[in-house]
Design a protein around this nucleic acid. Structure first.
Lengths: 163, 163
DNA sequence: CATGCAAATGTTATAATGTTGCAAACTCTG
DNA sequence: CAGAGTTTGCAACATTATAACATTTGCATG
């Protein structure tokens, strides 16, 4: 799993996608999970932008390329990809984004730009720790954390490149 | 705004609700906001349990009591209540819960028990600080934070009172 | 290679959640 | 009480997600 460029900095995004796919194949192989063509294609579509994609956006793209797909096709692929930590669901957007830290143990923190729509996934142990501590103080047993921060990314704070 | 009992500890919930309504009336009066009968009734329905209520659950309750309501009725009331910080939307549940800290400046952190469904809202400055720091490190301008922790509340860890 | 099981996919329908647009009613203010 | 702005009623619709069941595929094993 290699380091990745920030979504809002120019980078070779094709390489970004290829890397994600290679990582995914490796992760699935290790766990005897079947990264079937549909699943892989869905993962690729999601990685093709740093903006989260809705399930029906994915469906539309599949349909556009001739794939005979229905909603369950997409939701099942997304369930699989989530299960293996290859994509995340962004609850506040009802959308999905590629996991930037697939294979690593992490609590994702998502910075969502309301202007350009890009999402940056961070892995911040000190945030995770603070949350865990607060939950423990209430004798609450944490299982999953949803942490989504909406705001403005560096680029959009300047009022520019609203792409 | 007074301290409130924890949802999973027995308490006089009628008083809990009355207090929330009194607080809400006071907050709206101060801001010249109109807490109309429908809005107030929706707030009360939401406060009547510590389990978040879906918009359509609220709608069903309104309908059951003879109110001539349609989805927009509920969503509009909920929008209003959110705007004045009287309820929160729990994105991971598509549901709404009464705000336990109405009127106070806060970043809500929600502890959601997957067994009993109760939600406890915490206000934890150190968590808020850690998140803000992590976002700042990416030059991201934070606007709103969604922080929802799913797990088991103290009562349900014992395998009991799953109501 | 046959065969049988489990996993994955196709297909149709439907459920659950949320929004738009417009007209009528209400509320406040002058 | 007239007019402006806000709130509500109402119908239709859009979006997101799941259920149920038939069919196909991958693959281990006899």
């Amino acid at each position: 799993m290699s380091a990745r460029a920030l979504p809002y900095r120019p980078h070779n995004h094709d390489a970004c996608v290829s890397q994600a796919l290679a990582d995914a194949r490796s992760i699935c192989r290790k766990q005897n999970a079947r990264l079937t063509p549909t699943r892989e294609r869905v993962l690729e579509l999601i990685w093709q932008s740093h903006k989260p994609l809705g399930a029906y956006d994915v469906l539309a793209k599949l349909t556009a390329e001739g794939h005979n797909a229905a909603p369950p096709t997409v939701y099942r692929a997304l369930d699989f990809l989530q299960q293996y930590g290859l994509v995340h669901r962004i609850a506040s957007l009802n959308a999905f984004t590629g996991c930037a830290h697939a294979g690593e143990q992490h609590t994702g923190m998502f910075l969502i730009c309301r202007a350009c729509g890009n999402v940056l996934e961070l892995m911040d142990p000190s945030v995770a720790r603070a949350i865990e501590t607060a939950a423990n103080a209430e004798t609450f047993r944490t299982e999953t954390i949803t942490l989504e921060v909406a705001g403005l990314c560096p680029g959009c704070q300047a009022g520019q490149h609203h792409e």
